[in-house]
């Protein structure tokens, strides 16, 4: 009798999920989910966890938990509406979207199957635009949830940040004028500064004039913000964004501008291709006049020029490398201008 009890007891104990020790992951996190994990490993920014029947991704988050709450709720809503670009979230035993452990939070998602994003293929680029258009079509009809802390409009935060960058450029320029220019980077910078500063100021003026000031005039919400090849996965259902806790809000059109500015240089600023991308985007999102103006204004802001300047003045990269990068960028500019001109005449001439 005693032996039988012992066997039954052991059998019952075996059924409770075992807690697997995974390097760097607090053990109590997994206990909060209804899953049984066999093994796990850290893959870039998350843990890939193998369960009995499926694979999961466990993501670590550091920062304001209120924002995480909001972002995950945003994702969940989009998933419910049928958007397949984000990984589906798993709830904790208590029905929450994440587990808090100390200063960090962890959230669990499914682990998708797919192939890495190929930035050289036009088809892959088109898929990202497609995914963005679907995402932004949901934003269009969705009132932005306002938090108590949100005192400033999202677009003004971006505008201020851009203006600060331009002011820095001006300070760098004035500093260099007082010195003897010592290398090609400084000489190229001084030669090109006035043109790029003017471009930046004009872009900011256009953003202000575009004036997405009325609540529903432009789509606004959390931005994807990360279009690095590592963050994109080509699945059967289209492009999937791995990490989506970018935390910044803004005009939806900013995501499209960022994506195009990241990858169009690889296509030598092909105006025809840029137009095709926009056509594809507009199949699902109808851009109003303000959004068109906003798109063109954001597109014309010389972000990489500012980035190189900051890299140089921080001493973050070798002078020769930066000189070469700036020189290439300056060579690119004629193509960039041509592309912008084409888009402008096409968008505004309609």
């Amino acid at each position: 009798m005693g032996m039988l009890y012992h066997r039954q007891h052991l059998g019952r104990r075996r059924k409770t999920p075992e807690v697997v020790q995974i390097a760097g992951l607090p053990p109590q996190v997994l206990q909060r989910y209804e899953i049984e994990i066999k093994e796990g490993e850290k893959v870039k920014k998350c843990w890939r966890l193998k369960g009995v029947n499926s694979t999961y991704g466990l993501w670590e988050y550091q920062g304001d938990l209120k924002i995480l709450d909001e972002v995950l709720e945003w994702r969940e809503n989009l998933n419910k509406k049928g958007f397949t670009g984000f990984l589906p979230l798993s709830k904790t035993k208590g029905g929450k979207n994440y587990v808090q452990s100390g200063q960090r939070a962890y959230y669990l998602t499914a682990w998708p199957e797919g192939v890495p994003f190929n930035l050289q293929q036009d088809r892959s680029l088109g898929q990202v635009v497609e995914a963005l258009s679907v995402l932004h079509s949901y934003h269009k009809n969705w009132a932005v949830k306002k938090t108590a802390e949100q005192t400033e409009k999202a677009e003004f935060v971006w505008l201020k940040a851009q203006q600060e960058r331009l002011t820095k450029l001006l300070a760098f320029y004035r500093y260099l004028l007082e010195k003897r220019l010592a290398n090609d980077y400084e000489r190229l910078y001084v030669e090109s500064f006035e043109d790029f500063y003017r471009r930046g100021q004009e872009a900011i003026q256009k953003v202000v004039l575009a004036g997405c000031d009325t609540e529903d005039s432009c789509g606004k919400d959390f931005l994807v913000g990360n279009f690095l090849p590592d963050n994109l996965l080509e699945t059967e259902k289209g492009i999937l964004f791995w990490e989506t806790t970018y935390r910044q809000k803004g005009l939806s059109i900013q995501d499209l501008v960022l994506f195009l500015k990241m990858y169009l240089p690889l296509k030598k600023w092909d105006g025809k291709m840029a137009r095709e991308m926009l056509v594809r985007y507009r199949e699902k999102v109808d851009l109003n006049n303000q959004e068109k103006q906003m798109f063109l204004a954001q597109f014309s802001f010389p972000g990489r020029y500012c980035f190189y300047a900051e890299q140089y003045f921080k001493g973050a990269e070798e002078v020769n490398t930066l000189s070469s990068k700036l020189m290439n960028y300056l060579y690119e500019v004629s193509g960039y201008d041509y592309c912008l001109e084409k888009l402008e005449s096409w968008l505004l001439g309609e």
Partner: peptide, 20 residues
């Protein structure tokens, strides 16, 4: 042609990332 390996997508991304 470009004189050195360059990742424009990374630079544009980093600028955007560091902006705020």
């Amino acid at each position: 042609e470009k004189t050195e390996a360059q990742d424009p997508w990374m630079e544009e991304y980093l600028f955007n990332e560091l902006l705020l």
